[in-house]
Design a binder for these strands. Structure first.
Lengths: 350, 350
DNA sequence: CTGTTAGCGCTTTCAC
DNA sequence: GTGAAAGCGCTAACAG
């Protein structure tokens, strides 16, 4: 029924081994023979059987990419970058590696499931993006899984996630969330703000904690009291920013600035302020994090911390496929850049 | 070295066949035996070898999703929806199917490459999202490839792309781009606009053509001349909207409205108008297409055509995995909804 | 440079 | 309800 490598061999009048060698291009074959084989492949519309090939060779051309939410450009950009870098020479079968993008929804269970599935597929590499869950049990389980993946021969790269002690072989490209958060709030304090609301991400995530810690560090350094009432937690979505902003306004009418966990949340904050008839930054300044493409189009344009998501993803992809050397110690920190734009300004006078 | 099914069988004191049956859960096995096997699996940290399993069973649990640009929420939303629906009962090995998201960058070559790769992996299903290239040669090549995939047993679903004559077995969920474009321009004409610029997408794509045709249909119906100078083509990005808007303003100073090929392009148009000191919609109205999440946060909020991307993707995922019946004739049209918001209004008086 | 020969680890009839 | 055995289609030594 379906045409196999043996059929191609028969038609090209060579042995199956030769066909395999031509297809994988990793072994010297006479030009004439190669021609004949290639023609036979073409004539028969032959397509290599991936599972059979992976089984025999004990590796696959699949590269897993774990993301929290593929519909969020934060992850989309990284995934796209990883993918653009994993193709090319180095793999089997013409270097055509395939990206398997897995949507975990931020759930540790799904994260584990996908890691198992990738191990099952004998993935050549796995890139895990985004912050980690801080729950000790889950963290340990995921660490163990990552280590098993490494042991099984998959390369593991964390992109935007702190290193896991449990998986020492995994390379980590960590975002400097703390430093970025620090600089952002430093900027606001420099403008004269003192009553600053903070809309944090979901609890129990490293990204959330680090950004928040940076914020608090800045407050402390400036001698500004850290009023716990001014910090709210919520998911990384617009709604959370909207609701939290209204709540902050209720709790502290003298609020002059809102720092959001990321740009999407900041957009929600802006919407809430507009709906309340408050001007940005005249009445309240707003700042985000990440510098996603839409942030420049907010009105006024969003002050934020630019994370080089594409560059980080690309690097992760290269490391995952052995096209770039690992950073020393297997860990590299990726820094963000403060982008001061129209959404922040001096606080209003009373 | 690595633990195999035979190891599990030995430890559970059963035959490999039995272990396989337990793992696949598609065959009666005594409860006690199952328990023993499951324990052995756990004890040994056994993970099924996917390639071996796929080879023996002649199918895989991989579902391919082709997108033009994973960093674009338009595709991210559909991909996420497809993925959320492909897991669950029906597949082998506990129903855990894996999504393979492939970024084609809109290039027909890459599209073909990925389809081949998916065929090589013996993908259980393939969902192709986004508009098709209109070039006859490429269209035919892709049609042939899709048909071969169908023949090889993969289910093929087109999501947001017109049906391909070449692959009659493929199910198509088509977006009503023409109708949406028509309603959008009808709306502007209803407001009194006559000099309307149109920033179309890249040439040679069905999505571009259909949206544009809808626009022209509306002009014709209202007896408004279709000035070819007022239609510009460009990629689906912000930059294109920005540049094209400046060009339109140059070509036609009396311009009172700009219709963009999608929301991202519309955002670029808004930016250009702002930079020129023109107010929206006071001086110029702007409309987009798709209703991506950020569109509501544009200032003023963007008038656009909402496409139910998530719903369409979810349906595609269900059909791809046999959890929902195909639409009659294998074709269904997905309609958009006109969302009138602040970015469109009556034209200014001269 | 090319052919021969064993498997890779699993599924699946076919018996029992 | 369970086991034995025969491949699935390919790759990788090993010869030549």
């Amino acid at each position: 029924m379906t045409v196999t490598l043996a059929d191609v061999a028969a038609r090209a009048q060579v042995s199956p081994a030769t066909v395999s060698r031509v297809l994988n291009g990793n072994y010297p074959v006479a030009a004439a023979t190669r021609e004949r084989v290639l023609r036979a492949v073409d004539d028969l519309d032959y397509v290599l059987n991936g599972p059979a090939s992976s089984l025999a060779a004990a590796t696959s051309d699949l590269v897993g990419i774990l993301v929290n939410d593929i519909a969020d450009p934060f992850f989309g950009i990284m995934a796209s970058a990883v993918q653009s870098e994993i193709t090319g020479p180095g793999g089997r079968a013409g270097g055509e590696r395939m990206a398997v993008v897995c949507n975990t929804g931020g759930s540790p269970e799904r994260e584990l499931t996908y890691l198992t599935l990738l191990q099952r597929q004998r993935a050549a590499a796995v890139v895990v993006t985004g912050g980690a869950i801080e729950d000790a049990t889950h963290a340990a389980a995921i660490g163990r899984k990552l280590r098993r993946l490494c042991d099984a021969g998959s390369r593991v790269v964390l992109c935007g996630r702190p290193p896991t002690g449990a998986a020492p072989d995994a390379v980590a490209l960590t975002f400097d969330n703390r430093g970025g958060g620090r600089r952002l709030t430093d900027h606001l304090i420099g403008l004269g703000h003192r009553r600053i609301g903070y809309i944090a991400g979901p609890t129990e995530r490293t990204t959330t904690r680090h950004r928040l810690e940076g914020h608090q560090e800045a407050l402390a350094a400036a001698g500004v009291a850290n009023d716990p009432l001014l910090t709210l937690h919520g998911p990384y979505d617009r709604r959370s920013g909207y609701d939290a902003t209204l709540e902050l306004l209720r709790r502290e009418p003298r609020l002059t600035a809102v720092v959001a966990a990321n740009d999407t949340v900041a957009l929600g904050a802006c919407a809430a302020l507009r709906d309340r008839g408050l001007s940005i930054p005249g009445d309240v300044s707003v700042a985000g994090f990440d510098d996603l493409p839409f942030s420049i189009d907010a009105v006024p344009a969003l002050t934020t911390v630019r994370l080089p998501l594409y560059e980080a993803g690309a690097r992760a992809g290269r490391i995952a496929t052995g096209r770039e050397e690992e950073p020393p110690g297997g860990i590299a920190t990726v820094h963000g850049e403060l982008m001061v734009r129209g959404s922040t300004g001096a606080p209003r006078r009373h």
